[in-house]
């Protein structure tokens, strides 16, 4: 690039990043430990805070595996079995990316809430979804639904089916082939997908705030705890909680930063991953 523009562009780019991202995030760390580490620690170990941490952890431990199993399953279906309407399944999986989390939370209430479609049935069986853990789990799982699919599907398409066919000729059934051949091949992209899913579940706010009722000490996840802290004069707690989540986010970035190959695939428009013709090895020889 022409030398003349080098520094002006750099100033604009880095300046923008600094003012928008770096300094704000840094200031949260500052505020959290402004009054000393001990104060911060205390703020984050109150019963409500601990409950929030615990609840968030439980939600992650349930929602992430569910989304992972779903994600791998759908990726396999889309990559290995072409059927009329695969494009539809592909698009449907991306729906959570196109809808505001608040709307997702609302939609869950409309189905599983007291006046919702399943409301009567759930009440009759004594199952509480909204304002309770199941609702939070469902909301979190819903918003993070697409990530595993979007990471694993392109890799499955790229790998192609030859290794799996070879395994079949050697006597392996579908499960064995999946376990010994397919799964090891998608290890990396699966790890990325799980990482992204976890980050999303940890960070979800809009859907959860609607679905949970945000009852402190009962249905408050960490993100809700933070918001509550700011609005109700517990800033230290909020900042301390924010630091925890920010550190986790940085961890996510470190894990994801490892593979430059991924970069090229990530930021396309949601419904970009149609199963392509390249998945079946061409029969005609050249």
């Amino acid at each position: 690039m022409t030398a003349r523009w080098r520094w002006p562009l750099r100033v604009v780019a880095f300046g923008y990043l600094a003012l928008l991202v770096v300094i704000p995030v840094g200031s949260v760390f500052y505020r959290a430990f402004e009054h000393g580490f001990a104060t911060a620690w205390d703020a984050v170990t109150t019963p409500d805070a601990l409950h929030a941490l615990f609840l968030t952890l439980i939600v992650v431990l349930i929602a992430v595996p569910l989304d992972t199993v779903f994600g791998v399953g759908v990726a396999l279906i889309l990559a290995r079995h072409r059927f009329p309407g695969s494009w539809l399944l592909d698009a449907l999986v991306d729906i959570p990316l196109a809808i505001s989390p608040v709307v997702i939370g609302l939609s869950l209430i409309l189905v599983y809430g007291k006046s919702g479609w399943f409301g009567n049935w759930l009440a009759a069986h004594g199952i509480q979804v909204i304002f309770s853990l199941p609702g939070i789990v469902m909301a979190s799982a819903a918003v993070a639904l697409p990530y595993v699919v979007r990471e694993v599907l392109p890799v499955l398409l790229e790998i192609g089916t030859e290794q799996e066919q070879a395994a079949a000729t050697l006597g392996a059934g579908p499960f064995t082939t999946f376990r010994r051949i397919t799964l090891p091949s998608i290890r990396r992209s699966l790890a990325y997908g799980v990482t992204l899913t976890t980050a999303r579940v940890l960070g979800e706010f809009g859907a959860v705030v609607i679905v949970s009722g945000a009852i402190a000490g009962r249905t408050q996840t960490l993100t809700l705890f933070i918001q509550d802290g700011i609005e109700n004069l517990n800033p230290t707690g909020a900042y301390a909680g924010a630091v925890i989540l920010a550190l986790l986010a940085l961890l996510v970035l470190i894990v994801l930063g490892g593979d430059p190959e991924r970069r090229k695939r990530r930021w396309r428009s949601p419904s970009d991953q149609f199963p392509s013709d390249s998945e079946t090895p061409s029969l005609s020889t050249t």
Partner: peptide
């Protein structure tokens, strides 16, 4: 009979090695 029970051996043009 499905491929895995036919008792055949198959070699592919691009070898289809199990890379891992």
């Amino acid at each position: 009979v499905p491929v895995r029970d036919r008792g055949i051996g198959f070699c592919f043009q691009h070898y289809a090695p199990f890379r891992h």
